[in-house]
Simulated scan of single mutants.
Amino acid sequence: MESPLGGDEFAPVSTYLNTAACGLLPRRAVDAVRRLAEDTAAGNERAGGSLAATAAVRESFARIAGVAADRVALAGSVASLTGLVAASLPSGADVLIPERDFASVVTPLASRPDLKPRYAPLDGLAEAVRPGTALVALSAVQSADGRVADLAAVREAATACGARILLDATQAAGWLPLDAGAYDYTVTSAYKFLLSPRGVSFLTVGEDAQEGLRPLAPGLFAAETRDDMYGALPLASSARRYDEPPSFLAYHAAERSLALVEEIGLPALHAHATGLAARFRTGLVELGHTPVPGDSAIVVVPGLGGAREALAAAGVVVSAPAGGLRAAFHLHNAAADVDRALEALSGVR
């Protein structure tokens, strides 16, 4: 735990505990963006971007998520992917969502006036599934407080009632092992624990679930082949039919970032991040604070958001969603980062 797993890939100028808001770009990702930008500025044959890079990103995420690459679609944002699923639901569909889940999960579903969203506490979500529920939509890890959902219970309840599941893995993928094939749909933005720029997001869709999921704005990248770029093109038979045009600079970076995640491996990343988080929780309790309990890489102390300024003055970067103090631990962090944050909090009451 004493040495960051990222080695010399990272060089933050602060004690950075804010991956739940934005992940650090590794050097290799920055280099990839720089090379593509320079190639495009020079107008050489590598200008614009590489389809090989986007293919590598798809394959890398598929391995991280535990699914075949043909089950993965590439997009720019989670909200657009959640909107795709929302558009597939029949009018009047009963949709179950945890209370105060992240807006990218909730808003696309709630904005359809003919759906019937219901909200339940996260720890009572499985019990709230009922016959006739069409979709359960939730985050694997809550952005506001770092809680990890009881996904096994939700899957069991949804299966019993014939409901589909939409899982947002944005705050989980990169430190929490993920079996995306256990869900009808997963959506993931890569700019947090997958250490990529904004503009890289993923949809996984099961073969059965794909039957009822209609592409909303298919274009060239959703076609079965790109041999002819004119006229109406047949859509890909795989999940690639939901692909959006890639932002090549972001995807060139993501190719390198996801490769780093794979090199280290999710078991090591999970043990490292949750070990540091446990150390932080223990220290917080010793200081008289009460963090949200659990075994998450994200640690939140409700009501302590005002301490963010004291931490910033000490060179520690955290965030304060919903008034809580939130610290998130990842591969670039070490035990010394935990201790520095606790020292900065030692005088805060």
Rank of each mutant, 00 (worst) to 15 (best):
L325Y: 07
A65I: 00
L213C: 15
L233C: 14
P98C: 08
A110I: 01
S14R: 04
R349W: 13
G6K: 08
L96Y: 12
R27S: 13
Y191A: 07
L213W: 00
A42T: 00
G66C: 05
V154G: 10
R256D: 12
T290G: 13
S60Q: 05
R198H: 09
V85N: 10
S189E: 14
D123V: 08
A327Y: 11
R71N: 01
L194Y: 01
A149K: 05
R35F: 11
V292H: 02
S319G: 09
S77G: 12
L135T: 01
P218N: 07
S143N: 10
S296K: 04
T133A: 14
L151C: 08
A42E: 12
A335G: 13
G146Y: 03
A68N: 13
V205E: 02
V129F: 03
A217E: 09
N18L: 09
R63P: 14
A341K: 14
A254N: 04
V316T: 10
D227G: 15
C161K: 12
A222L: 00
A157L: 13
T82E: 10
A190M: 08
G303K: 05
A42L: 05
T282G: 14
A232F: 12
L203E: 04
S257E: 14
A47E: 11
P4L: 02
E263H: 15
G124V: 03
F221N: 06
C161F: 07
T290N: 11
A344C: 12
P267E: 03
P177K: 06
G315A: 04
H330C: 06
A310L: 08
L216R: 10
Q171A: 12
P267F: 00
F10I: 00
G146R: 06
L109K: 01
S77R: 08
F10N: 06
V299M: 03
P98I: 05
T225N: 15
A307Q: 13
D150L: 01
G294E: 06
Y242H: 11
A93G: 15
W175H: 12
L266W: 11
A190L: 11
P117V: 05
A254S: 11
A20K: 10
A320E: 13
H332C: 12
E263A: 12
A55K: 08
A11I: 10
D184E: 12
R130V: 05
A236N: 08
A182D: 15
V78K: 00
P234H: 05
V72P: 07
R308P: 14
V261D: 06
V154Q: 14
V261N: 06
A55C: 07
